[in-house]
Write a protein that binds this DNA or RNA. Structure first.
Length: 287
DNA sequence: CCGTTAACCTGAGAGC
DNA sequence: TGCTCTCAGGTTAACG
């Protein structure tokens, strides 16, 4: 699920449900996520009240009443499900996989509250949960991340200063979380299309006009995706408006062989691989 | 220091 | 039907 907009939607949904609620019990079925789950994980969460829940780039962060932190990363295939205890109804289903029924064998963690529970499901196990003991650990954990794409410190000054010495292509740079955090493969492709920049272009050759375009569309595309509830989210209830439909707005992602969506462009969307990641762009207007 | 590649995992879909 | 191969929204250790 895991680019910034999808994680934001998960956060919003969770926040409404679990803020100020007490965790009664934690059940772990498989500790072998991307990093082995800490042995004191269950103990650290049990009987804790969730005081705060927020997001940093692609990470979810919970702060408990004892001032400890739990950070969550969804990896490639991690999904969070809220299930009401009484009716056994699934009130959210943030599902990457198209199958309606979630394979139970990948329900690795259950966090149980009094009236409902949260299930973490992750077939590929690239996601992880980690307890941080205090503010210092929290700060040092996140200081390796670059500015978040939606934040004010991802700005013209930052790009002017930091693009000129980068020899790698702009697409890889947008995916580099140490350079800018929150953007993943879908939105990197989309942002470059809107900005009319070839994904193979060397970052140091990005000119001033393109810097402005990149900034403008990074923020526009991510905000629009949040507005539409992220991409590929199904059965998403308890939210306002039409949600989880941004995949219908894709301009280039998985649109190879289609005509360029720009009316005045006669180009075609082509697919290439850049560092083993699928890359989609118009062979005419993204030069 | 830099940039690229391989590796971590499972499941879906294509091709034979 | 079943086998093999490729690909998937992420990150990072290891390498040149």
């Amino acid at each position: 699920m895991p680019e910034l907009p999808e994680v934001e939607i998960v956060k919003q949904s969770l926040k409404r449900k679990i803020k100020d609620k007490k965790i009664i019990k934690v059940v772990v079925r498989n500790r072998n996520l991307r990093f082995k789950l800490q042995s004191n994980f269950e103990k650290n969460l049990t009987n804790r009240i969730v005081n705060k829940i927020f997001r940093i780039s692609k990470y979810l962060i919970l702060i408990f009443d004892n001032h400890k932190y739990c950070i969550i990363h969804l990896g490639m295939s991690g999904t969070v499900h809220l299930i009401n205890k009484s009716k056994k109804t699934k009130i959210t289903n943030l599902s990457f996989y198209k199958s309606k029924i979630l394979p139970k064998k990948h329900n690795h963690i259950e966090i149980i509250f009094s009236k409902f529970k949260i299930i973490y499901n992750d077939p590929r196990r690239f996601g992880f949960f980690k307890i941080l003991n205090n503010k210092h650990e929290f700060k040092s954990y996140f200081n390796k991340l670059g500015p978040e794409a939606l934040n004010d410190d991802f700005n013209i000054k930052y790009l002017k200063k930091n693009l000129k010495n980068k020899k790698k292509n702009i697409k890889n740079l947008l995916l580099d979380q140490k350079f800018v955090s929150g953007i993943g493969n879908i939105y990197a492709n989309e942002i470059l299309f809107y900005s009319k920049i070839n994904p193979k272009k060397k970052a140091q050759k990005i000119n001033y006009k393109e810097i402005n375009q990149l900034l403008k569309f990074s923020k526009k595309v991510l905000n629009l995706a949040i507005k539409f509830g992220g991409s590929s989210i199904k059965d998403f209830k308890n939210t306002k408006g039409s949600m989880g439909e941004f995949q219908k707005k894709f301009k280039v992602y998985e649109k190879d062989n289609e005509k360029c969506p720009r009316k005045k462009c006669s180009g075609k969307i082509i697919k290439i691989f850049i560092s083993n990641r699928s890359t989609f762009f118009c062979n005419s207007c993204q030069n």
